[in-house]
Design a protein around this nucleic acid. Structure first.
Lengths: 251, 251
DNA sequence: TATGTGTTTTGATGTGGATCAAAGGCAATC
DNA sequence: GATTGCCTTTGATCCACATCAAAACACATA
């Protein structure tokens, strides 16, 4: 597959699916909120998830401080989440792709804690929170799965803490590429070649590194025969080698 | 108050409260899972939270990999949560004190993701998860508050990511002390003098720093007249000065 | 009181990644 | 196809924190 086709495949909205409103016919249902629900339960969820929203590249799905009233399921596209600190410093705290849930940070305090910015034209399902609460009192499978998604977000973040707290630069970047690869794979895309949706700077912000360091690591991986990189296009040549980058550290 | 008394006050179990089983009479109820529930609702919760467990200093409340079947509310004492990576490297991902909930990381995959280790003799309430699910289908206040606690854990962790990703050593340590201070204050303890329950190394692990760096920062803060430190005892002398440590960074 | 063990402090030195700087590449718009 | 505005790469230098080392200290147990 050429790079151009790959880019198109990953960002094309699924026009057919847009004709049907919601989860029952969504090809992401096994990854998303409805995972594990019965058909009858799915129908109930469909009544809840009826508002779709398109977000243009660069625009915010929500911003820190805004009133929280819904969570969002990414239907297509790609987002970054970004926390801005009082003094203006900010950090990217995550990247989200199809089937992943955004906005759960807002439940605790009633306002969003971060900005969710689309890194490409994107499409989300809006899930009003109070109605989700109501429905998950009736549909225990939904309740359980929603809890799981929140819990997994907690676990994901402690993984990032590990990354930031104990790994060195190249390990972080290898781990990041492998994580992306695995998530793309779960969505039916090639795990070995893909387009990065974020800049080196955004990647660095997420990983606690400067963009120059990210760039140098990419060059090093390329020289070591682990990957091919051309701007935002990445091809993983030696996935085992990439895994060894952080398996074989010196303690 | 002398340092000895302070230490005793913070670690003494509340013998009287132990006679009553659960939440309705717990002095932590405003901070803990039952926050905001009506008296009737509290009574229902009392039926759920009936297993108490004592954990000795150094022992684990649970360990990574164990089957998850309950979350825990810290009643007295102090815990660290620790994630161990495949290759043996580990990181402290949090510290928990009275009224805080432990174990929510296990919901997603059905097994615990980290070890929870008592840093002093501690006392927890066991909350069986399936019963919590059932009850929160009936008691919407409980459902909502449980969601809030999970969400706050997500927000807390993104705060730590910020700390690890963008702050420098002294900022991290100042932020850490102020966070401890604020949490102790919310529990009725002095926000200005307290005993650290963790070693310099555990603090460093949490903050992504080496123990020597933590020690040096403490010495520096002492020389700058911000705090007094004597081993595990800390007195904050100039809380505003401490806040300025990370407010006045150079960008 | 002596002894061992783990914790903390402090100093000297090393280094990974930040910072500074400059050049080159890509894509959109005119 | 020239201009403009990012984004990326690469090199040179710097510095914050790690690492290495040693001594002091705290606390438990014999």
């Amino acid at each position: 597959m050429s790079r151009g086709e790959l880019a198109r495949q990953q960002s094309t909205h699924l026009v057919l699916a847009e004709l049907k409103a919601a989860c029952a016919n969504c090809n992401l249902r096994e990854l998303c909120l409805p995972a594990g629900l019965s058909n009858a339960e799915l129908d109930q969820l469909d009544n809840l998830v009826n508002v779709r929203r398109k977000i243009k590249r660069g625009d915010a799905l929500y911003r820190a401080g805004e009133i929280f009233d819904a969570i969002y399921a990414v239907r297509s596209g790609f987002f970054k989440s970004r926390v801005t600190y009082e003094d203006g410093r900010d950090q990217v705290t995550g990247f989200s792709m199809g089937g992943e849930i955004l906005g759960m940070d807002g439940i605790g305090q009633g306002t969003h804690n971060c900005d969710a910015i689309a890194l490409e034209d994107s499409d989300v399902c809006t899930i009003p929170y109070t109605r989700l609460e109501e429905l998950s009192r009736e549909v225990s499978g939904l309740q359980r799965h929603f809890h799981k998604m929140m819990s997994r977000e907690i676990v994901r973040e402690s993984g990032v803490m590990m990354l930031l707290g104990v790994m060195r630069a190249e390990e972080r970047i290898a781990a990041f590429l492998l994580n992306l690869s695995q998530r793309l794979n779960a969505r039916g895309y090639s795990p070995l070649e893909f387009h990065l949706r974020m800049t080196r700077e955004e990647m660095g912000s997420y990983l606690g590194l400067k963009l120059e360091t990210v760039s140098r690591a990419f060059s090093k991986f390329h020289n070591d025969g682990l990957i091919e990189v051309e701007q935002k296009f990445v091809r993983i040549i030696d996935i085992e080698g990439l895994k060894q980058v952080y398996a074989h550290h010196v303690n």
